[in-house]
């Protein structure tokens, strides 16, 4: 065994502990550090230190502070804060804007997640058929995912422009009435979903494509030899093999959709008539426009509780399937 002289700060390990473990576990070590536990005990700590400091400052502390804030009437405009117990939470439960923005969020999640999974799968299956020009297809489907949200909203506000935009040019060209893509209450959220599908489907597409490329061909070939047609092979061989990937994609997608904010805030500010305002925008409005940081925090944590419940429910669901 080498000495730890060169590690400086780490210093030598307590000899007895390390030696005892070494002799016992030496031959079959895989999990426990074979270099001799304890030897790098404190050095490991140094490796972890910078991350831990940042993690504590910018993750743990804000979470804890946020919880505390949710029990106060902290405000950006007033000095002096007092403890208000569960008042904020009680108010949130009775706040119709919380419920309506939550409803909008759930609606958006439903209408965006389903196509974001199905279309991504279709794209990956089609690209995987091996048609020439792979990089063109990958670029076409994945490139929008690389765009900053403001670029996406600039492009789509032009497409959705009521008088000159491509959307209404196409609609009127086939003889229909122009649509108020972002101004009609019953349409605006669907427009947001379409924009979001175009923007983010590329990521799910890549996950599916990677999964498809790693599938073994053998099962598939066997099915083909047995005379199974293309559809039959897709349904009975390929899709079942993609179950795990689908679980992952669905889970990530639902979590991502629940967190919708940026594109809606930029394009409609939640309008018209708050029909597109998601819960995160309401939190933003309460905290940064209404200056009520304490109340905003309490809604944040209620929302976080929902996110956790949804995640656990999904984990359970997909575990059960396996």
């Amino acid at each position: 065994m080498s000495t730890t002289a060169s590690t400086g700060a780490a210093g030598p390990r307590p000899l007895s502990e390390g030696a005892a473990r070494d002799s016992a576990a030496r031959p079959a070590v895989t999990e426990a550090a074979p270099g001799g536990p304890g030897r790098r005990g404190r050095t490991g700590l140094l490796f972890v230190l910078p991350f831990t400091v940042a993690f504590g400052l910018f993750m743990v502390w804000p979470i804890v502070y946020g919880i505390w804030m949710s029990f106060t009437d902290e405000s950006l405009s007033l000095r002096g804060t007092s403890f208000v117990g569960f008042d904020n939470y009680a108010e949130a439960f009775g706040d119709p804007d919380v419920w309506s923005s939550l409803g909008n969020t759930v609606f958006f999640t439903l209408i965006s997640s389903v196509p974001l999974v199905v279309i991504a799968l279709a794209m990956a299956l089609l690209v995987h058929t091996g048609l020439a020009g792979q990089w063109v297809w990958r670029l076409a489907f994945f490139a929008p995912y690389l765009l900053p949200v403001t670029v996406v909203t600039l492009i789509w506000s032009w497409l959705y422009q009521p008088d000159l935009g491509l959307g209404n040019e196409l609609v009127t060209a086939i003889g229909l009435e122009p649509v108020g893509w972002l101004s009609d209450e019953s349409v605006a959220m669907w427009s947001m979903a379409v924009l979001t599908i175009w923007w983010t489907v590329g990521f799910n597409f890549l996950l599916y494509l990677a999964a498809l490329q790693s599938l073994p061909d053998s099962l598939h070939e066997a099915a083909a030899l047995d005379g199974a047609g293309a559809w039959r092979r897709l349904w009975s061989v390929v899709l079942p093999q993609l179950r795990r990937t689908t679980g992952l994609v669905v889970m990530l997608q639902i979590l991502a959709s629940l967190k919708v904010f940026d594109q809606i805030y930029i394009l409609t500010k939640g309008g018209p008539n708050e029909s597109t305002r998601p819960i995160l925008e309401y939190i933003y409005d309460v905290g940064f426009t209404g200056y009520r940081l304490g109340y905003a925090s309490s809604i944040s944590y209620l929302f976080f509780a929902i996110v956790i419940i949804v995640s656990i429910a999904q984990l359970r669901f997909f575990r059960q399937g396996d």
Partner: peptide, 17 residues
Amino acid sequence: ASIMVPPQLLIVPLFRQ
């Protein structure tokens, strides 16, 4: 576990910080 935390949750306290 912190992977689950939506970054938006931290915005208000981080801004305070």
